[in-house]
Design a protein around this nucleic acid. Sequence first.
DNA 1: GTCTATAGCCGGATAGAC
DNA 2: GTCTATCCGGCTATAGAC
Lengths: 196, 196
Amino acid sequence: MILISTRDRIVERADTLFYEGGFEATSFADIAEAVGISRGNFYHHFRTKDDILDAVIDRRLERTRGMLEGWQGEGANPRERILSFINMLIANRTKIMAFGCPVGTLCSELAKLDHAAHARATDILGLFRDWLTAQFRTLGAGDRSEPLALHLLSWSQGVAVMAAAFRDEAFIGNEVAGMEAWLVSLTENSFKTKEH
Amino acid sequence: MILISTRDRIVERADTLFYEGGFEATSFADIAEAVGISRGNFYHHFRTKDDILDAVIDRRLERTRGMLEGWQGEGANPRERILSFINMLIANRTKIMAFGCPVGTLCSELAKLDHAAHARATDILGLFRDWLTAQFRTLGAGDRSEPLALHLLSWSQGVAVMAAAFRDEAFIGNEVAGMEAWLVSLTENSFKTKEH
DNA sequence: GTCTATAGCCGGATAGAC
DNA sequence: GTCTATCCGGCTATAGAC
């Protein structure tokens, strides 16, 4: 039997609720109810709502690192690893069509709230950027590695926003196919051309 | 002297506040203070916060139609008109880096709130989609017109999300250059290839 | 049309018993 | 560690005077 600490359960449920309902709109009562504890007990684990947000971002940073390490081990080459990234859009399409990208939407919300945690939420995107940059560098993209990484990350963010707006699954499929074709064209051209 | 009704001033200020602070986080008091009226007076014009949101979306729909008509008149050809769309990212870059895209972020927020106005907010994106589709069709893109329109709209949404996260102006410039090159490659190939 | 005053609720946060 | 009870403030919304 696995015992999960109340603190961890709070962070786990808060993570989900922040994703599905937004940070601002999620109340202590919502989280307490989801965890199954009283509101008062809450403050034994976290002093403020911002502390929970910090813990949620920590959790996401940790899980993102784990996921990237997993892709690193599974993929035989950088192209396959990048495909693992792209495939996230397909694997998570149902939730993305309902709530968008967990990271992108959090960054957008925290930007508007002018929240101190905005920079740390952006660090999660930074993990993807750096990992993708490393993949493109291994592919031989040289100085273009980071712009290419940012472009693909940006592309996926756009697809997530549009998917949550139009709720169009076929659109996601089209764009993912476009990403894969783009990746093929990059490797075929061996990064000799400047445009994609 | 131009007289603007209190109602219009409420909608105008609410539009700005919803953009810069988010719908949920903006209170009646915030709007009343921005307009310079009392909270009580508010309910003479709008019964609920959702009514204000509806009016704000109406305003955005109207202004978007006006903007698209303007581009239609200014641009000598569809390529130039599409460039007007792309140029929005440059013209509004300061606000986009601070708050993201007004439409994309509103759709994302309303999706999480499971708000009834989500579909109408998406209609604003739909105006861009349909207008861009018409431009690509005039360019001779045929059946690919709508996918191309959705792709460009999606691309711009991704850039807005990333710009608001990383606050990187150079990134916006790179992506806009990429969009322009993509548009050139499309017209040069006269839509004979399937990939971009 | 605009105001003040206020109802009623819910938010985050605290104190203290067990 | 968990609970109940509670405070305070801000929120939406209403009533009614001017």
